[in-house]
Nucleic acid binder design. Sequence first.
DNA 1: GATGAATGAGGTTTCATTCAT
DNA 2: AATGAATGAAACCTCATTCAT
Lengths: 210, 210, 210, 210
Amino acid sequence: MNDTPTLSRAERNRLQLRADIIQTAFEEFSAKGYHQTAISDIAKRLGIGHGTFYRHFENKRDILEHVINDVSAKIINALSAENAPTAVATLEGYREQTARIAKSLTAIFAENPGVARLILFEATSIDEEMTQRLLNLLDWGGRLTASYMENGVKLGFFRADLDTEATGHAVIGMILMSVVRFLNTPDDREAQKKFGDAIQRLLVDGVARR
Amino acid sequence: MNDTPTLSRAERNRLQLRADIIQTAFEEFSAKGYHQTAISDIAKRLGIGHGTFYRHFENKRDILEHVINDVSAKIINALSAENAPTAVATLEGYREQTARIAKSLTAIFAENPGVARLILFEATSIDEEMTQRLLNLLDWGGRLTASYMENGVKLGFFRADLDTEATGHAVIGMILMSVVRFLNTPDDREAQKKFGDAIQRLLVDGVARR
Amino acid sequence: MNDTPTLSRAERNRLQLRADIIQTAFEEFSAKGYHQTAISDIAKRLGIGHGTFYRHFENKRDILEHVINDVSAKIINALSAENAPTAVATLEGYREQTARIAKSLTAIFAENPGVARLILFEATSIDEEMTQRLLNLLDWGGRLTASYMENGVKLGFFRADLDTEATGHAVIGMILMSVVRFLNTPDDREAQKKFGDAIQRLLVDGVARR
Amino acid sequence: MNDTPTLSRAERNRLQLRADIIQTAFEEFSAKGYHQTAISDIAKRLGIGHGTFYRHFENKRDILEHVINDVSAKIINALSAENAPTAVATLEGYREQTARIAKSLTAIFAENPGVARLILFEATSIDEEMTQRLLNLLDWGGRLTASYMENGVKLGFFRADLDTEATGHAVIGMILMSVVRFLNTPDDREAQKKFGDAIQRLLVDGVARR
DNA sequence: GATGAATGAGGTTTCATTCAT
DNA sequence: AATGAATGAAACCTCATTCAT
């Protein structure tokens, strides 16, 4: 009945504070940027002493690591949770799946612009390892998309000579551009829809007159 | 017979040093990142006193501005120099133009990975204004691409209902993904070509089986 | 039984250090001058890291402000504490009062030459605001003296047509000259006494033969 | 017929520039303060290279030395030129002399507030030697005043037991206070006159009712 | 003789991290 | 376990002075 029966109150508090620190750090980093955020800023906002921070995280780089992990996990979960590439068998199912994925992404990026800002704008300015993390995430997204397309090819939705890997990554590129483009105008749903439609149309028909 | 007849030797030295500082700053910023680079690092690499730096540039932000301007100008020039959107009238000409542009971009990004690293990875972590500069550049690229497509629609190469603006930006997204993807493997020309071909094919035909 | 019951030990230490910094800054500023004193000089003399300084004061200007406030307060207290202008009713009382005030001033300036050096020699070289602070202090002194004289006029000790305001300020001028004159010979009590007597005599009788 | 017959044109130019530098340095120092004035500020205002400065003066301290000397000389000249202490023999002459001296001082201080600002506000914040220079000047003024009074005693204008030395210095103190008081309101002639009259009256009659 | 480019000592300030309480 | 005072490395920037041209 109780999933965490062995956690003492102190332990629960501790975990809660840890989560709070990560959340606040995420907000500060994505709002002001990693370099412009001081540990004491985070502590102040939480109403804790900034020494306390170091009881939960090694150093400033460490908290960024956790924040990025958290955010990455959210994205990965959203995209892979119930959306196995092989889970659909009909064209209609494929379309629904695509719509569902697009909705998940929207939920993450549009509803929380900080996620994009942090991942895309900040992560790359820390160090090589962090940059690699982003590149890996992008690569993962590209490969995931590619596997969906692979499925589409197998099922005959897509042309047989489709370079699924490259195209998968290209799709991620278009999605990212959409994310970046509407960072500052998250409420312009119409423009976002137009952009989404254009991508969809490009995928299906290309640009050439037929 | 003399291209720079009015420049004294001192003046030439001055301009040369200025250019050297910008070049070195560019290298340091793109290699280690803006925040990880100290003015004294730049000076040391040039073998000048760090006070000398401040005779040529107001402050650290100022040199970044110049570096970014320099790099932006290179990109803008490469893409707009001889490639007026209306300059082609046949499908063949359009293809050649596309190839030419792709080559220019390759020359800039592939041959000099620092350019991408600086513009894409560093610029966004400085401040709002710098981020906006990048967004503006992306926007400019998207609109330029869109205008090429507009021409294609007019000339009947492309379908009449093409959302040129959104598609133009989407293309920039794919190009950027290509740039980012091959940052660490600039010599894998084959993979790059495959990616380029996939984009080209996607544009022309889409992914759907016909 | 306990004068400071609510002050924790940490708080007391903090206040003590703050006071120590002000004191040391005062000594350095008055000995070497504000511009010739580095924050690190103050920290070094206190045996603290110079970063510690910035935990207690905003910046260099801030500590000067506190030092000047401290010193000003000492002067103002010494002169106004128990010496209300209207407190005396007889000529004898007036003389005693004058002697008491002179003694207070002596205690401050003669026993601690730094006070004069800082207020008179340094304050004016910082900025307009600091200069104004000194001028205000002088003005306050002049008006205080004037109010004593006003009382003397009312009680009939002084001539009815006395320009109390101007004369009050003139008296401050003479006192300051005394302070400045004996800065370097604080032990020559005799000369100081002669100077004080001359002022006193000048006030009472003027210089003219009668 | 020609006082400086041997000066070549170059030599005259040189001397002129020297004088210009001193004048400009004076203006900058008295307006912004010694520490807030850069050598390059002075050079810029004169339209010369700042390296040129060092052909005429050893260093920054040196130019201050010359500026102070210049200003001191002006004051000394104004006060001692035609005003020998023994030059008057009647009370009326003494009064005229006093008025003449007061006028000279007014000409210097009131018409050129920078002189006072530099001598009184800046000189003391440089170093011990410069402070001593001001003290010496004050001392000289006090002794000069004292010698005038000595003469007055001899001639019987002043009471025989007058402490001329102390009183002379006290008078300088009152004059300085007048100078300082009206630095910011140089146009309030009426208040200045009132102050001058009060000093005069204090000297002649003291404050006591008779 | 004039110039101004170059220099680097010197100063201020920030902030990640440590550690005694 | 939490705190926040203390630390000092590290960064930015200024400007008096030198010196090659």
